[in-house]
């Protein structure tokens, strides 16, 4: 078997989480919940999991980051870090939908939803047939517009328990990089080197990463899933200063 060491992290939710996976198991993991300090916490977390497992970046064979959807400022920290580390280390960087990592850690036997906080009274969500199979999404909607009945994994469910129904709420609340790494390592093991290289290549210009993520399901390029357009208004004529 070829040597595998996957460095994974996710910053698309309040969890800043990093992990190393050797193809068989998670060898180190670090998670801090702090929605406002992704930029401060991620690089030290990466340094820490490397140190704890006695590895260096030179040993890493693939870098994987959660592509969201998630609040954009934090989300970009993870993707920028993955792309930049990959460039210096000369290894491929991949993206995995953050909701897929949450789903992968779910202990559900039947279908379920995953939801995370999208702020502005909305949630990012997706529907799964089982922990490895996304059937619909990711999308962004108000919590009361989520399809009824199914259990809801993730903080996006728990924070709107009054709307969704407390009996539908399940854990985990946040994604873990360990689950992200395990999911990615499993998928990477099924790919040829050429296929992996094709996925990791960041396409020129702006490609709709949502489409890309759907089409490739689990593994995609390390590009953000935004789901919303930037807020911006084209101004009218300048305001008059005289009446």
């Amino acid at each position: 078997m070829t040597f595998v060491l996957v460095l994974a992290f996710d910053t698309a939710t309040p969890a800043v989480t990093a992990a190393l996976h050797d193809g068989e198991r998670v060898v180190a993991e670090s998670t801090t919940i702090d929605a406002r300090r992704h930029g401060e916490l991620l690089a030290p977390a990466v340094e820490q999991v490397l140190r704890e497992s006695g590895a260096t970046l030179r040993d890493v064979t693939a870098i994987v980051a959660g592509t969201g959807p998630g609040p954009y400022t934090g989300l970009r920290v993870g993707l920028m870090t993955a792309t930049a580390l990959a460039l210096t280390a000369g290894v491929p960087a991949f993206g995995v939908c953050t909701l897929d990592a949450l789903a992968y850690a779910a202990e559900e036997s039947g279908p379920f939803l995953v939801a995370t906080d999208a702020r502005r009274k909305e949630v990012f969500w997706a529907r799964y047939g089982d922990p490895r199979t996304r059937l619909d999404g990711p999308r962004v909607d108000r919590p009361h517009d989520l399809p009824g009945e199914l259990p809801v994994i993730g903080a996006g469910g728990a924070m709107y328990a009054d709307v969704i129904g407390a009996d539908r709420i399940r854990g985990p609340l946040h994604p873990s990089a360990g689950a992200l790494a395990a999911l990615a390592a499993g998928r990477l093991a099924t790919l040829s080197e050429e296929e992996a290289a094709e996925i990791a290549r960041v396409p020129e210009g702006r490609v709709d990463s949502v489409e890309k993520a759907r089409e490739l399901s689990v593994l995609g390029p390390p590009r953000p899933i935004y789901l919303r357009r930037p807020d911006a208004q084209v101004p009218g004529t300048p305001k008059r200063v005289t009446a």
Binding site: L42, L57, A84, L87, T88
Partner: peptide
């Protein structure tokens, strides 16, 4: 974020 990753890498 980019600069930290370059420095770390």
């Amino acid at each position: 974020a980019a600069a930290k990753a370059y420095a770390l890498g």
